[in-house]
């Protein structure tokens, strides 16, 4: 059952994420706001853009106060938004050249989203929620059901497959969202403040889940402003005013995430 979820992408030299000179600005002329700018060019004073590589199997926390550009970065990484300039290679594919149809395919196959506000579809059972990305991928009904149930039991909600979002607690809803994000075995799990709306116990549950996924080789990019949450990551990026100001490695890429390492789980 587990092999469905735990499908490791073969070792490749290509990083999962490679961005080069990426900028994102809103507005025009004097009113232009650079949400992502990177360091300024010393000669022209123009923003040079952000550059970043994220390796296969890494667990990266992107930190920053609100307005620092971390959500903009997350939206671009998730192919929900397009950069103003620069290149973004996801799993070796330049997404800048893809049309809307291909982008939806990329979101479906390569990215699993976990949002702060859960973003479950109302009036839909947990099982149907998790089946949804598989349905869009064109997986047959029986196979879809099997994989969705496997993902739900992985997050510990196998018993609650028939429940609708309003019948689940916040932590349970977020676990459904995690199951939904990982059911297609994406190259990367993108979590935007996944614990922002949760109490401390649910926070621990969801973080443990993400730790576990990373330990099995899934690349995780997590956006947060809490140090507690960032402590789970192997690498911590700090964004201030659209620039990466610090890049701190807390644990090696090919080891277990620090939280599990502390508990003595072998690599």
């Amino acid at each position: 059952m587990r092999h469905v979820i735990d499908k490791r992408v073969p070792e490749t030299p290509v990083p999962v994420i490679r961005i080069r000179r990426l900028t994102k600005s809103y507005g025009h002329g004097d009113a232009t706001v650079h949400a992502l700018r990177g360091p300024d060019d010393p000669e022209t004073g123009e923003p040079q853009g952000v550059g970043l590589d994220i390796e296969q199997g890494d667990f990266v926390a992107v930190m920053g106060s609100s307005g620092s550009g971390k959500s903009t970065l997350m939206n671009i990484l998730g192919c929900l938004d397009v950069p103003t300039s620069g290149r973004y290679l996801l799993d070796g594919v330049d997404v800048g050249h893809l049309d809307e149809q291909q982008l939806s395919l990329v979101r479906n196959r390569k990215i699993g989203f976990v949002f702060q506000s859960f973003n479950l579809i109302p009036r839909t059972t947990a099982l149907a929620q998790v089946e949804l990305p598989l349905a869009y991928a064109g997986v047959r009904a029986a196979e879809r059901r099997r994989r969705a149930l496997a993902a739900l039991s992985l997050v510990g909600l196998g018993e609650r497959a028939g429940h609708k979002p309003n019948e689940l607690s916040g932590g349970q809803q977020q676990r459904v969202a995690v199951a939904r994000a990982l059911v297609t075995a994406p190259a990367m799990l993108l979590a935007d403040e996944p614990t922002g709306n949760l109490d401390s116990r649910s926070t621990e549950e969801v973080l443990a889940l993400i730790d576990g996924l990373n330990a099995t080789g899934r690349t995780v990019v997590l956006i947060t402003h809490e140090d507690e949450v960032a402590r789970h990551a192997k690498r911590v990026l700090r964004l201030v005013d659209g620039q990466i100001v610090s890049d701190l490695r807390q644990a090696p890429v090919d080891g277990p995430p620090p939280a599990l390492h502390d508990l003595g789980v072998p690599a």
Partner: peptide, 16 residues
């Protein structure tokens, strides 16, 4: 609208 956004994030093609 929000639900449409979620579906799109999950990879729903325009046609769907």
């Amino acid at each position: 609208t929000r639900e449409i956004g979620i579906r799109k994030a999950l990879g729903a093609p325009r046609a769907v």
